[in-house]
């Protein structure tokens, strides 16, 4: 599907300083029975977010009105486990545009990028600075500039450069999608098949 263009985002953040957040936590398997991409945001982090009776747990950050925003800042090794793209759909469905962590699992990263959700990998030191900054001021704004590949906290004058595959960056900046690219290569693929 064509993805939404991403250029620059400035937003407050939601902190989730837990390591190894796996895709079963992001969206538990029992919610994977849908056949469309919509509606997963309601069940994002379901078992952390709601108690057994479906009541919001006060101690979970998504239920804490102090924090809001389009950037999720998470602990190391985010998105490990299952290949379910439903995890990316749940995060975008909830309204996140950027996930910041010091490390991402592979499949999650490509799933996120395929849905216009930007994974920003920062150093462990910068991640800690971010968590502290959010703790000190829950409304603090973080800026993500994809074109220059820079994440910064303007009010604190701290910033860091992040990596992204050049091709993926072009896709995001322009809202292109891989499938269009490959469909345009059809002749070449057929020629390759005939030769193989």
């Amino acid at each position: 599907m064509p993805i939404e263009k991403f250029v620059t985002l400035e937003s407050s953040c939601v902190p989730l300083p837990i390591e190894n957040i796996d895709t079963d936590q992001i969206i538990p398997a029992r919610f994977l029975k849908a056949t469309t991409r919509e509606g997963f945001g309601d069940n994002l982090f379901c078992d952390w977010r709601y108690d057994k009776k479906g009541k919001p747990r006060k101690d979970f950050v998504l239920n804490d009105p102090t924090y809001s925003g389009k950037i999720l800042v998470a602990g190391e090794n985010f998105g490990s486990g299952s290949s379910r793209e439903h995890a990316a759909w749940a995060l975008t469905g909830y309204g996140f545009k950027v996930i910041v962590s010091s490390f991402f699992a592979d499949i999650f990263k490509s799933n996120a990028l395929n849905n216009g959700l930007l994974p920003v990998q920062v150093t462990p030191g910068f991640l800690e600075e971010l968590f502290n900054a959010i703790k000190d001021d829950s409304a603090i704004k973080v800026k993500v500039d994809l074109k220059n590949q820079i994440i910064s906290v303007p009010s604190l004058s701290i910033s860091e450069k992040f990596d992204i595959n050049n091709y993926k960056k072009t896709c995001l900046l322009n809202g292109y999608d891989d499938i269009d690219y490959l469909l345009n290569m059809k002749e070449k693929i057929i020629a390759w098949e005939e030769k193989a």
Partner: peptide
Amino acid sequence: IGTSEVEMVLATQCLM
């Protein structure tokens, strides 16, 4: 692979 990639392979038999 993720579902967008499943679509990619169904559509083209290739993957990025």
